[in-house]
Design a protein around this nucleic acid. Sequence first.
DNA 1: GGCGTTTTGAGGTACGCAACTCATTTTGAG
DNA 2: CTCAAAATGAGTTGCGTACCTCAAAACGCC
Lengths: 354, 354
Amino acid sequence: MAQETDQETDTLAGTALTLKDIARQAGVSLATVDRVLHNRPGVRPDTVRRVREAIARNAFQPHVGAAELARGRARRFAFVMPSGPNLFMQQIQDYLGEMSAWLSARRLSVEVVATDVFDPSVLAASLEASSGDYDGVAVVALDHPGVRGAINDLVDAGTKVVTLVSDVPSSRRHHYVGIDNIAAGRTAGALVGRLAGEKSGKVAIVAGSQGLRDHAERIFGFNQVMASEFPGLTVLPVLEGRDEDDRSEQVLARLFGRHADIVGLYNVGAGTRGVAKALSDAGREKRVVFVGHDVTVLTRRLLLQGVMDAAISQNPGHEARAAVRVLLALARGEPILREQEKIRIDIVMRDNLP
Amino acid sequence: MAQETDQETDTLAGTALTLKDIARQAGVSLATVDRVLHNRPGVRPDTVRRVREAIARNAFQPHVGAAELARGRARRFAFVMPSGPNLFMQQIQDYLGEMSAWLSARRLSVEVVATDVFDPSVLAASLEASSGDYDGVAVVALDHPGVRGAINDLVDAGTKVVTLVSDVPSSRRHHYVGIDNIAAGRTAGALVGRLAGEKSGKVAIVAGSQGLRDHAERIFGFNQVMASEFPGLTVLPVLEGRDEDDRSEQVLARLFGRHADIVGLYNVGAGTRGVAKALSDAGREKRVVFVGHDVTVLTRRLLLQGVMDAAISQNPGHEARAAVRVLLALARGEPILREQEKIRIDIVMRDNLP
DNA sequence: GGCGTTTTGAGGTACGCAACTCATTTTGAG
DNA sequence: CTCAAAATGAGTTGCGTACCTCAAAACGCC
């Protein structure tokens, strides 16, 4: 019907071997292949090798659907997250909710455990309490010895653990789903510097607390870039607003009173409403380059109005889905698609608002 | 062991109903439920309603693994893509390759069909030829009546079709995986304008061809922003470099010779190497704000060197995976996670290079 | 060579669904 | 009321794996 087109075709996948084929090739029974595949005891090293070779030779992959069906038991995951009215965390939960059809089609259950993430002992207790109940746990973690211990205990018990948004690199968690906060701070710095143009002047930083690992890292990255590339700009001492609107507004208002030549402002955490109010009360709404974090209803409006110039964002939907997918892959023993699960640092300006 | 922590727990999914439960609730047999579920004939409208209600009432989702296992036949997808040495397209293919383990664990096969995408009749023939062979087709499409017809024919034959990177909105394709190119152009415009600072001067545009839909749309968005927000900047007539290095360099060199006050440069398509060469030959490497598209080995280097100021990027890995996931969801009749499959317009600068 | 232990084979069952057959019941048109 | 057509029930088979039991074979030790 159609004339031959000189097209190449390149097949990427689609073998259809089963366990039976592997058994035949290795010259053993199905039971033995099963023992090897699941690291069950009672197989001679030599036999193990033969089976492994047959598996490798054929690039055999167990049919994920069949495996899921055969194991019967559903997998249970927990998301341990802050209980406060944090908008970003709320977004993550919302996106988990949007996945419910996807989850139930795979017989997965995801439970959100709200806890006081900022109290290490409470967080650790929450984690310990969930031991044994779940196949996997995603936790917005505080980097603290008690929390680290609790994470390691979970890992030792066979539970898969991923840290979410905030990492505990010294623990033995299997994966971290979140951004590199130093790079995020550097990005913010480059934006403030570039958008401020040739101007010289002062730059203000408002953070929740310098005790929070992610905030501290962002500030570090920010200062790095400012020092090395924008010598004309002077970074003022970091203000702490505790991620609260009122307090952020107050400290900032005081600062504006003292310095008339502020050309840039970096809001490291939340409290955006207060920051914006201080800016407008001081009448400097559009004369100060304002860079903050995360895309919410508020920052979206500020970007559209031109009050905010850019938001550094980590996609909450992506983080929610990546955490689930990573936990699932870990539980199944599947490889993780690193490129897919890597959370990127998004620069969001008015015209590329998602 | 652990003291009670006052934590709320909120379960999101995890029911475990089966078809049998639905049948019992609806007061019919398994066979009838099956008929309803797959729109097979021979069921009274009233009975259909009762079954549908039972399904809805329990938010029943067929076990995706069991379904996949039962249908036996593997699913086949095709990616119809340009045959040329296009780096971006090559990246998409590379990322498809990285998925091979994921694909084979699900007994999916993906074939890449290389064709001359820029010749409508050849492209249309390629599409027609693949009719019946595949459950789904992803195509980098040219917006042309012949291509539109071929896409519609595929859809009518029951094949799922998604357009990739470049859309054919007038066709009945099921989904488009790619960015909004007008918004991408607007973003580029905003960046050039903002990064050029207070300066007034001229802005150059180099495109592959204004006949290409995506290029035309980007230019449109770019001009929109320049006209409305940066009246101090004058946009020069669009240069056409045919996405080739040499030609881009020539036309640009000539332009630099005529205009001394160029402060911004937008490279809409490929030919980046030539553009960069023209810039450096003219000795304006770092005095002109240079914004382009896509993150490749070359643009990455130019960003790090400070020659390029920003790259507008659509993540090729994301596009590859999204296309596969969308085709799979369509074939299975599963809902599409729109938020997940939406391709975002990434602003990539030196410090958030992926 | 006999013994206990380790390793292996053979086989079965279950998982939830798709896709089919065939017998039976219900329905509605005349 | 009759009879063909339509609707439904009941059942089977197979998909590829996990997990289990039991018996048989091979092995190592004294």
